[in-house]
Computed example of a mutant assay.
Amino acid sequence: MVRIFSALVLSCVSAISLADTLDDAKASGTLTLAVANEIPYGYLDSDGEAKGEAPTIALHTLDALGIDNVEVLVTEFGSLIPGLKAGRFDVIAAGMYINPKRCEQILFSNPTYTIGEGFLVKTGNPLALHGYEDIKANTELKLGVMAGAVEFGYAKDFGIALDQIITLPDYPSGVAALKTGRVDALAGTVLTMAELGSKSDAVELAQPFEDLVINGEKINGYGGFGFRPGDERLRDAFNTHLAGLIGSPEHVAMVEPYGFGTHTLPGDVTAAQLCTP
């Protein structure tokens, strides 16, 4: 059974220290996930059901662990790590990229996918924006990024001026900013940008798109599940299950409806590697 909770409902919950989240969850059969309502990673559909790559895999994993009463909390992406650390939920199931900065704050499972970047632009791409270099080359342009997402760091590290980077609370706000001209492009993963582009005739995925390269390295994000420090046993239980699931025909069938598949498999890359600066 999956129960959906608004972030506001649990906003007053005090941080609590659990002796062992895995044991407690197995004893009660209950655990709380958090999503950021970002298609196709983790969101609620029109019926209030948890959908997306991360919740689908998480629910499958938790069921295998004997935990079948799963509460799903919706919060802004930028509130995921603070909320996890405050004890408002137990697992981040939002397709969050694993990187050293985040690894300093929370634990991560091994990745379940890898994906590249993309831009959302006005239909017809009137400014011919096909990559981060196009924004950097014209200081009059503004690039929208979601608060708490990796694209802010990507843009800064690429050399785009800080006054060109506009931080927005979520992607619907980003689409609105693009439509009104507050930003000239919205940055995010290619799957998210394609999904947003499919919902409005006013915007589209920028195609073709130049691979993002920083310091000679092509940038691909690797996403996984987030856990509180101290919940190593829960993280390890996820990793054990994921090791037998990721890349299997069952896994591919589970995630293909969301645009993932064999082309987004993470290979042998581990969280330990991604957490290393």
Results as ranks from 00 to 15, higher is better:
Ile219Ala: 11
Thr270Leu: 06
Val70Ser: 02
Pro126Trp: 12
Gly223Thr: 03
Val190Tyr: 10
Thr139Gly: 07
Pro55Asn: 04
Gly259Lys: 11
Asp90Met: 03
Ala176Glu: 15
Tyr154Ala: 10
Tyr154Lys: 13
Ala93Tyr: 07
Ala177Gly: 09
Asn37Lys: 09
Asp157Met: 11
Ser6Gly: 00
Gly259Ala: 09
Pro126Val: 08
Val150Asp: 15
Met146Val: 14
Tyr113Ile: 01
Val13Ile: 12
Thr139Cys: 01
Leu22Gly: 12
Leu143Ala: 12
Lys142Trp: 00
Pro277His: 11
Val183Asp: 10
Ile67Phe: 01
Gly87Lys: 11
Met146Ser: 08
Phe89Tyr: 15
Gly223Asn: 06
Val175Met: 08
Leu84Val: 00
Val145Trp: 05
Gly181Phe: 03
Val91Leu: 06
Ala25Met: 09
Phe227Thr: 03
Asn69Met: 04
Pro208Ala: 05
Pro111Cys: 02
Ala34Thr: 07
Tyr113Leu: 10
Thr189Met: 12
Ser46Glu: 15
Arg228Lys: 15
Gly144His: 05
Val35Lys: 04
Leu129Val: 05
Pro100Asp: 05
Val9Ile: 02
Phe158Ser: 05
Asn37Trp: 09
Ser46Tyr: 12
Asn69Pro: 00
Thr114Trp: 10
Asp20Leu: 13
Gly116Met: 02
Val145Ala: 04
Glu256Ile: 00
Gly52Ala: 11
Ser109Arg: 09
Val35Leu: 11
Asp236Asn: 14
Ala64His: 04
Glu71Ile: 01
Cys12Phe: 02
Lys142Gly: 00
Pro266Ala: 06
Ile106Asp: 07
Leu22Ala: 12
Ala15Arg: 15
Ala272Cys: 03
Leu107Lys: 09
Ser109His: 08
Leu212Glu: 07
Gly181Cys: 05
Leu62Ala: 06
Leu10Ile: 10
Leu274Tyr: 07
Thr123Phe: 11
Leu84Cys: 00
Phe119Arg: 04
Pro249Phe: 10
Val9Gly: 14
Asp90Pro: 03
Thr180Glu: 14
Gly78Gln: 10
Asn69Leu: 07
Ser248Leu: 02
Ile135Glu: 02
Gly197Asp: 06
Ala19Val: 15
Gly131Asp: 10
Pro111Arg: 02
Thr61His: 01
Ile115Glu: 13
Ile115Pro: 01
Met193Gln: 13
Asp23Cys: 11
Gly181Met: 07
Gly216Ser: 06
Gly174Val: 08
Ala137Thr: 01
Thr240Leu: 06
Asn239Gln: 04
Lys156Val: 14
Phe108Glu: 04
Phe152Leu: 14
Glu133Ser: 14
Thr240Gly: 08
Leu44Val: 12
Leu127Ser: 08
Leu65Gln: 11
Glu250Gln: 13
Asn69Glu: 14
Glu232Met: 07
Lys199Pro: 01
Leu59Ile: 14
Pro100Gly: 04
Lys156Gln: 14
Gly247Ile: 01
Val252Asn: 14
Gly66Glu: 08
Val255Asn: 11
Ile160Trp: 07
Val35Ile: 15
Gly267Met: 09
Leu141Gln: 04
Leu31Phe: 12
Thr123Lys: 15
Thr75Pro: 00
Leu141Lys: 02
Arg102His: 07
Glu76Ala: 02
Ala19Asp: 15
Ala202Cys: 00
Val203Tyr: 03
Asn37Cys: 03
Ile135Arg: 02
Ser248Glu: 05
Gln105Lys: 14
Phe89Ser: 05
Ala137Ser: 13
Ile92Pro: 01
Ala137His: 03
Leu31Glu: 12
Leu234Thr: 06
Met254Thr: 03
Pro100His: 04
